[in-house]
């Protein structure tokens, strides 16, 4: 059975079917990401003053990832344009470059995730005094852990409850100041496991900011992976369609390019919202 309107446009829609389909799909995607952006705004507006983090994410890495995705959008459109001009060799080059960009993006993202997942907030109790330490886990054994203090940290409800908040006051201020001194000197902090009351990494459950950060960027990364798989298929086994039905193949590349552009456009909004503002 032949699938209709894979190459020529339907008279009533003015589009070939796959293009209509991808735009309907992208409309649903706008609603999905729109809802999550709204969630971000509501969480941020509703946060206790001074507790929403600034500078927690690595802006140079985020910028590099943004550049990588922008370049990939250029290569994806050039790949499609090459097919329109019947230059299959050039298409291969641009399609390959897009796949490399997708891979680079995911590798950089994984480094960012690793940075968050090895970042810990540790509450200790020594005598009747509580301390909150914050830093990257650099070493651990059954007796102790070693943290490298971080320049940027989050203030969780738990830390604030122990008096380690964004606006230090009284005796707690001195303790917090002590923690900052550690941070300035880049001295490692050794903590005995027996004194640890609570220890949690900067995963999604640690703070509302991290929850929405991982949800938004994780969903985006899944889209990148999905798009890359489809484009890898066209680059590999799917490319033989060029010999039998070049027009339909060109349309398929356009559809994957539209999806890729949407994914990149989402990042163009995500980057300033999460990293800069």
């Amino acid at each position: 059975m032949e699938i209709p309107y894979t190459v020529n446009a339907r008279k009533d829609t003015g589009l070939y079917n796959a293009k209509l389909g991808i735009w309907l799909f992208l409309a649903s995607e706008v609603m999905l990401f729109g809802a999550l952006f709204s969630a971000y705004i509501l969480l941020r507006v509703g946060a206790t003053p001074g507790t929403w983090p600034h500078g927690l994410l690595n802006v140079p890495l985020g910028t590099l990832n943004t550049i990588v995705l922008i370049v990939s959008s250029v290569t994806v459109v050039m790949a499609w344009a090459s097919l329109k001009m019947k230059q299959f060799g050039k298409w291969r080059m641009y399609q390959g470059a897009t796949l490399v960009c997708a891979l680079i993006f995911l590798v950089i993202k994984s480094f960012e995730y690793n940075d968050k997942l090895t970042h810990y907030e540790v509450v200790t109790k020594e005598g009747d005094k509580f301390h909150v330490y914050d830093g990257h886990l650099v070493q651990e054994d059954k007796d102790k852990i070693v943290l490298h203090p971080s320049a940027h940290r989050l203030y969780t409800a738990r830390a604030i409850a122990y008096g380690f908040g964004p606006e230090p006051a009284g005796a707690h201020a001195a303790a917090d100041h002590g923690a900052k001194e550690h941070s300035d000197k880049h001295e490692l902090i050794t903590i005995q496991r027996s004194t640890i009351e609570h220890m949690e990494n900067y995963g999604p459950k640690h703070h509302a900011y991290l929850a929405i950060y991982f949800t938004l960027t994780g969903l985006h990364a899944l889209h990148v992976i999905g798009g890359a798989i489809v484009m890898a298929f066209f680059f590999g086994p799917g490319a033989k369609m060029w010999k039998t039905n070049p027009e339909q193949f060109t349309n398929r590349i356009e559809i994957s390019g539209l999806f890729w552009h949407f994914v990149d456009l989402v990042w163009i909004f995500l980057f300033p919202v999460l990293y800069l503002l």
Binding site: I70, V77, G257, L258, H261, L265, I268, P272, L276
Partner: peptide, 23 residues
């Protein structure tokens, strides 16, 4: 088409780079 969407994308990129300059 992808061509038109790419133009929208380029405009969004331009807005981002201008924002980044100001920031």
């Amino acid at each position: 088409s992808l061509k038109a969407f790419h133009i929208v994308f380029v405009l969004a990129t331009l807005a981002l780079t201008l924002f980044l300059t100001v920031w």
